[in-house]
Design a protein around this nucleic acid. Structure first.
Lengths: 343, 343
DNA sequence: TTGTAGGCGTTATCAA
DNA sequence: TTGATAACGCCTACAA
């Protein structure tokens, strides 16, 4: 039993290849009986169309790629699920693709567009430093949860959806300060970070400033570069070191929930309690934060809403030829058990 | 600037298409200077070969697909990383593909083989109930962490790597019993589960039996079918219900760590303590278990080793034409803070 | 070492 | 409503 092709099916049914093609692709101009007969033969012989050939020939496949930077990111998995639903509703197919931290998502996108004849692209996370490359992308795309794409980009070329990372970060730190904390350590991104990491740090600094608390550089603890970014283990290691350094602080603000959980473990392991000895806050609002013990105080990004908005704006551009749009969505401060008022 | 093709590059360089092709594919019979010149032109013009066309023509791409059932499964993400490394070492490419719980992974595999000219497939998780379909798979494949594929399969057609779910489950429950627990609830799979869920339940039952503890059906709490399987929220809901039912027990064994974490939350929320009031144990040994508070007692599957073994056996079959093999790897009981001795 | 030409499996165009 | 046929972009004999 060799590999079946459309020709084999055509021969088997005594029809031309184009008729078979029409049957497969639900073309309207085909006799229902012929179609039924063909579909039957296809079923029985287990024929599967070759996608490569299809993509090669097709002008446009009704598919949209979602490129996720950094897998095992719990935060994204909910978003993807919602996007899949929404895209399905529009009769399109979602092509999911993971991009490693060291891969260039734009290269991947460029490739995928050629290979799959994509109608559009959604970028989930990532940085985007290369203006020239992005300009080569001829299909509509949306940056989702990528706040602060570089200013040198032409903002008319794409859409974006994100929370205001700086403002939300400010909100959290301001909240901690209002609780009475003055020495607030921040578990931040690596110093070269130009994206959300930078913005969240900026929010931290502004909150201190507006509350007249001098910035203490020793309270800024960047993630380690030799470990996975935004991972629990990274948060754990950095916090452990921070604790051992004997720098005094009463609250720790991690710029992501995963980091925060790692931080919590380091604190608990050192014999200290949360929130009695240290208040800990995160950012993102992943489901795990609710389940952690203590439950995490965090900034909850409206994942469902963002996912829905992302797909919506993409289809606006795609179908209605609408202009690209840049949306900022509000996030919510969730008060968990991991922070307390300092009396 | 339209889409570049290999012809454009050829014309641009004043050479034939085959020469360009040779340059791209690192063929040996090409003048280094010509090659350099061509690669340069490719770079400058941002030409990207069309993968669909390549796959269509190629007899076999050096790529291996990894099909993961149920994404957002933390347990798998480590395995994938290791597999990627190992596969890269062999100069092959890893094609990652997620399969939803309601999709049929074999259909997906069949498609992918055609589209990508795969050399082999790795299945991560899943069930495999359709013998006929699997037989259509003409490339070598390995079932990884899928213990207990149905008996009606011809075991010479594929390889498999897994822990002995029944025995490891027995180990855990036996451990709990040795700690003095007699009323051990189990957070189990849905009753139709024919795979790991069934095996882990079997281990539970045997442990009770061998320790002369009568089985109490009311202590078996299956996951809810209307929620995501093996999720924290599922574990949370089921445990909450269990606690409210006032059925007495001193230990809770969840057949996965994610379930266990959900269970912990439900217990803590009810005002009880772990392990003082309830001991909780999980299964899988995901990283999160270490970071949870209290850290989880669990059965740690040797993920790295399994991933490595999976790739190894696949390449044995692929390159050396070796026979398919079925490996059972040992797991380790990790004693965390979530269980205690009952005095 | 290089170029020409044919074909991979499919869809789209056109004529029947 | 159908069928023949020309692309789609690439790789690979084979010939030069």
């Amino acid at each position: 039993m060799e590999e079946m092709t459309i020709k084999d099916i055509a021969k088997l049914c005594g029809v031309g290849v184009s008729t078979v093609s029409r049957a497969i692709n639900n073309h309207p101009d085909i006799n229902p009986e012929t179609k039924a007969m063909i579909m039957n033969a296809i079923e029985e012989n287990g024929y599967i169309p070759n996608n490569s050939a299809r993509n090669l020939k097709r002008t446009e496949a009704k598919s949209i790629a979602v490129l996720v930077k950094g897998m095992s990111n719990l935060f994204f998995s909910t978003m993807i699920k919602v996007m899949e639903e929404e895209i399905k509703k529009k009769k399109y197919t979602l092509v999911l693709h993971h991009v490693e931290f060291n891969e260039d998502e734009i290269d991947v996108a460029l490739q995928l567009v050629k290979e799959k004849r994509l109608a559009g692209i959604i970028f989930l996370g990532g940085y985007f430093l290369h203006k020239e490359k992005l300009e080569k992308l001829q299909v509509p795309y949306v940056l989702s949860t990528v706040s602060g794409p570089p200013d040198n980009l032409d903002w008319k070329d794409f859409s974006s959806i994100a929370v205001d990372d700086e403002a939300e970060s400010f909100k959290m730190v301001d909240y901690l300060i209002k609780l009475g904390h003055k020495r607030i350590a921040i578990l931040s991104a690596i110093s070269m970070d130009e994206s959300i990491g930078k913005l969240r740090l900026l929010g931290y600094k502004r909150a201190l400033q507006e509350n007249h608390i001098p910035l203490d550089e020793s309270l800024i603890a960047p993630m380690r570069t030799d470990m996975e970014q935004y991972s629990m283990s990274n948060g754990y290691m950095v916090t452990k070191q921070l604790l051992e350094s004997n720098i005094k602080f009463t609250a720790l603000y991690a710029i992501s929930d995963m980091l925060a959980i790692g931080a919590c473990k380091a604190i608990l392991e050192s014999g200290k309690r949360i929130p009695e000895d240290y208040s800990v806050a995160g950012f993102d609002g992943i489901e795990l934060g609710k389940y952690y013990n203590p439950s995490l105080t965090t900034i909850k990004q409206p994942v469902e809403e963002m996912a829905r908005a992302t797909v919506k704006v993409l289809f606006k551009v795609l179908s209605d030829n609408a202009e690209h749009k840049h949306q900022v969505v509000p996030a919510e401060l969730i008060k968990g058990e991991s922070t307390r008022e300092l009396l």
